[in-house]
Simulated assay, not measured.
Amino acid sequence: MSAEPPLKPDWDQLYRVAEAQEGHFTTQQAAQAGYSPQLLAHYVRIGRASRIQRGIYRLVHFPAGEHEDLVAVWLWSEQMGTFSHQTALALYDLSDVLPARIHLTLPEAWKTRRLRVPKLVVLHFADLLDSERQWVGAVRVTTPSRTLDDCARGALTPDLMRQAALQALHRGMVRGSLPTVEEALKPFGGLNA
């Protein structure tokens, strides 16, 4: 793909980008497909696209996606964020956790950035290895093992932590022992209490 945007708007290119992101795209992605800010504003006015938040849009007639709220947050993070903690547990359907907030891990370097964090988003900062992340649908999520470690270090209740770890082991999502989880659960009777 060339660095120069096309001379005229390329709807097919914009659609392909949005299709991979549950119908969402950024102002920058639109520009790469040849859409000026003025043309994008026109598409919003005529109802072909809707503005989700600053710099993030959605194709109006694109079918609703399962994780649209997460895609918008991921695009807000400039595609650098990885969903983690309780959000990752919910995406993997591990335990009965129903997170009221979206947990997103950003690179450590983002700690110094002044961010206008979207409502209901909790930020964590860590330089994740590629081996600690994977795709779940249209979003990047910490692996089950990393997710369990993060939750064990966080504020997840012992019952939900135990349930998540046992489900992950039973379903073969993690292998071997879970030392961080076992240590966190030691005061509460251990993993198999």
Rank of each mutant, 00 (worst) to 15 (best):
A30T: 02
V17Y: 11
A168G: 05
D93R: 15
K186C: 02
A33I: 06
A3Q: 13
F25V: 05
K8R: 15
P144C: 09
E68M: 06
Q29A: 13
S77R: 01
H61T: 09
G189C: 10
A193Q: 07
E183Q: 14
F62E: 02
D150I: 03
T27D: 09
A184C: 06
R114F: 05
D12Y: 12
G65D: 09
A20L: 13
R171C: 03
E108M: 12
A41I: 07
P5T: 03
E183G: 10
P187T: 07
V136R: 08
S131Q: 12
W74F: 10
Q53T: 14
G190P: 03
P118S: 08
V139K: 01
Q79E: 15
E78G: 09
R140W: 05
Q86R: 12
S131T: 14
P107H: 06
Q167T: 04
P63I: 04
Y35Q: 02
I46F: 10
G189T: 08
Q134E: 13
V117G: 08
T26N: 10
E19N: 10
Q38S: 12
E66F: 01
F188W: 14
A164G: 01
A152P: 04
E182N: 05
Q38L: 11
E66I: 05
A90L: 05
T112K: 14
F25N: 01
T27A: 13
Y57C: 04
L128T: 05
D127P: 04
L7D: 12
W11T: 01
P179F: 08
N192D: 11
E4H: 12
G137F: 09
G154V: 01
F83W: 06
L129Q: 14
R146Q: 12
L123H: 00
W74P: 00
V122R: 11
T105L: 07
L185C: 06
P179K: 08
R175L: 10
F188P: 02
R116K: 14
D93T: 10
A31N: 08
T157F: 03
V122P: 00
V122C: 08
A20H: 08
S177L: 08
S177F: 02
F125R: 04
A138I: 03
V122Q: 13
R58W: 07
G190W: 05
T112M: 04
L7R: 14
R101K: 14
E4G: 04
E132H: 10
S36N: 07
